[in-house]
Design a binder for these strands. Structure first.
Lengths: 244, 244
DNA sequence: GTTTTTTATTTGTCAGACATTTAAATGTAT
DNA sequence: ATACATTTAAATGTCTGACAAATAAAAAAC
């Protein structure tokens, strides 16, 4: 661990970077204990509050956890898929809302990514995945389901589809993209006829995955993509009309 | 902004969560200025160092930036694609190294995602993208290029390919997946014959994209995927043999 | 030998102070 | 009146020193 810091301010950022680098390069391994805050303060030649600010930065990225008490301290975290996925969802959500990403772009990305999973899903799907997909299809047909619940079930369906591909890295990216899109999806209203069509397409996808027919699944997903984009376009027109 | 904090410890985390929620829900908009640290301390009923730890957490996630001086303070950041991508790369890299993800899984995810971009890239590619791809292909044929530089050029090639799809969200996920894989790719040694084959496949992909033939591009990419997986498997065998 | 108590260590928090940076207000000269 | 230099005030960045709370290990009591 480096002991010298540049003269320019922002010590806490420099210390956080130094420790982060040590973790990334493997100098600090999982569950390793960092020196105590006082020791770090002495090592880097700064005060304890400054060290603490640095540690909080790392904690915010889930790189370390802290424990109080005699054998406590800061420990290197094992970065989990779930944590990365959560922070990806948060970041992506903000990215979409702050940068005025249009529905088409987000939709296109989502279905393109999903399409990438289909061949693998068709090959590896297990009964649990098929059951999860069919359960969501059934829920989507329930009477009195509001738009938000329909959307949530839609997300769950696609999540099961992605899980069927059996690749955790793909799941991570897909879940990030799909969940981040939910605020946009929630602005779309799903009439009964729209729902029926979506459910029919979901059923075609599930059947195709069941029958290990990746090509049929891709065809149905493409239809779903263009229909969803169409619904999004309609929703935007209606909002524009309401404003004008 | 809430004023009450639960009695359980970890004030700084609670304050960070409260402010983060305000940003996500839009109560705090881009470039809005947070109250001064002293004001926040008073509002939440804690000391300034505690508030500062909370702010450092948010700064670590790029949610806020701070400026010193009279008109300074903490401001809500516009979350940029670049920042999200950088943090995604960092997280993914750690995820791969800490969770012993095998080369096949990472490779599979990467090429599956890349395949998702091909139809869009074939449709939208611009001369700049084609030029970038061909420039990297030329570099990959350079004599005396070490493995790491070859890998870097490989990443640049695929990055250009992804950019051609013209969807920033896809680019974000792809770049995250591809760059995070680089440490794994760097463990593979590329002999002259391997390089020639990879370059030939790159050329086939570039030509297909140039000719707007997504099907041909997919075929070439699939070959590249299986060949890369094969090289990775060989590299693993050699390491195993060296240990045994 | 088991349980209880003590103790030492470490993080979490507080208070007040000073240093540094920076924009705006003020003053000054042309 | 404008341009430039100076002062000022507000804000973050940092330091010192202290106490509270949690916790594991050591010591003591039974």
């Amino acid at each position: 661990m480096k002991t010298e810091l540049k003269t320019a301010g922002e010590y806490s950022a420099q210390i956080a970077n130094a420790i982060r680098e040590a973790i990334i390069t493997g100098k600090l391994t999982v569950d390793a204990r960092l020196p105590s805050e006082s020791d770090l303060a002495e090592t880097f030649g700064v005060s304890r509050p400054t060290v603490r600010e640095a540690l909080k930065r790392l904690a915010a990225q889930n790189l370390i956890r802290t424990q109080r008490g005699a054998a406590g301290g800061a420990f290197v975290n094992r970065v989990s898929f779930e944590e990365v996925q959560n922070s990806l969802v948060t970041s992506s959500t903000l990215l979409l809302s702050m940068n005025a990403i249009d529905f088409e772009t987000a939709c296109e990305a989502r279905y393109a990514l999903e399409r990438a999973c289909l061949p693998l899903a068709a090959e590896r799907r297990l009964p649990t995945h098929l059951a999860a997909m069919r359960a969501e299809i059934a829920r989507q047909g329930t009477d009195g389901l509001d738009d938000q619940a329909f959307c949530a079930s839609d997300v769950a369906f696609h999540r099961a589809l992605v899980e069927a591909a059996g690749n955790p890295i793909l799941s991570l990216h897909l879940a990030g993209a799909v969940e981040a899109m939910q605020p946009l999806m929630n602005m779309v209203t799903f009439r009964t006829r729209s729902r029926e069509r979506i459910i029919a397409l979901h059923r075609r996808i599930a059947d195709a995955i069941d029958g290990r027919d990746a090509g049929a699944a891709e065809a149905a997903l493409l239809e779903l993509a263009s229909y969803t984009a169409q619904l999004g376009g309609k929703a935007r027109e209606q909002r524009a009309a309401a404003r004008g």
